[in-house]
Deep mutational scan, measured.
Amino acid sequence: SEIVVAMYDFQATEAHDLRLERGQEYIILEKNDLHWWRARDKYGSEGYIPSNYVTGKK
């Protein structure tokens, strides 16, 4: 599975969105859409994140 790191904070506005915290790692579950990826955080929460807010883990 692909691990990404959040470059920016993202506040979830929709129920299906996942909040991003800058510097935290997330697991990508689905990339069915170019701009919104389904991800899981370290607490096990899942939701959609803006793909341009994250970068591949170095």
Rank of each mutant, 00 (worst) to 15 (best):
D17M: 15
I49M: 02
K58F: 14
I28R: 00
N32Q: 11
H35T: 11
S45M: 14
S1P: 15
D17L: 15
Y53G: 06
N32I: 13
V4N: 01
D9Y: 05
Y53L: 13
E2Q: 11
W37N: 00
E21V: 13
Y26G: 00
H16E: 13
V54E: 02
G23Q: 04
V4M: 11
I28Q: 00
F10C: 08
S51Y: 07
G23N: 06
R22F: 09
H35N: 12
A6W: 03
Q11A: 12
E14H: 14
Y48N: 08
D41G: 02
V4D: 00
L34H: 12
T13S: 11
F10E: 00
S45A: 14
R22Q: 11
H16G: 15
Y53H: 11
A12T: 09
Y43I: 05
G47M: 02
W37I: 03
D33E: 08
Q11I: 14
I49G: 01
A6I: 04
G47N: 00
H35M: 12
L34A: 14
G23S: 03
I28N: 00
D41F: 02
G23A: 03
R40A: 07
H35Q: 11
E21F: 10
S1Q: 14
T55M: 09
I27S: 06
D41A: 01
K57D: 11
P50M: 05
Y26Q: 00
R40M: 10
R40S: 06
L20Q: 01
D17N: 15
I27F: 10
N52Y: 09
K57V: 13
V5P: 01
H16A: 11
N52V: 10
E25L: 10
G56F: 14
E21H: 09
R40G: 02
V54A: 02
K31V: 04
E21W: 07
I28A: 01
F10T: 04
D17Y: 15
Y26R: 00
L34I: 12
W37Y: 05
A12K: 08
Y26S: 00
V5H: 04
L18V: 02
H35D: 10
R40E: 04
E14I: 08
E2H: 11
W36C: 10
E21I: 13
A39F: 04
N52Q: 13
D41V: 00
R38N: 04
E2I: 12
K31Y: 05
I28V: 12
N32D: 11
Q24W: 06
K42G: 06
W37E: 01
A12V: 08
V54L: 05
H35W: 11
N32S: 14
D33C: 12
W36F: 08
I3C: 09
I27M: 11
K31C: 09
A39T: 02
L18G: 03
S45H: 14
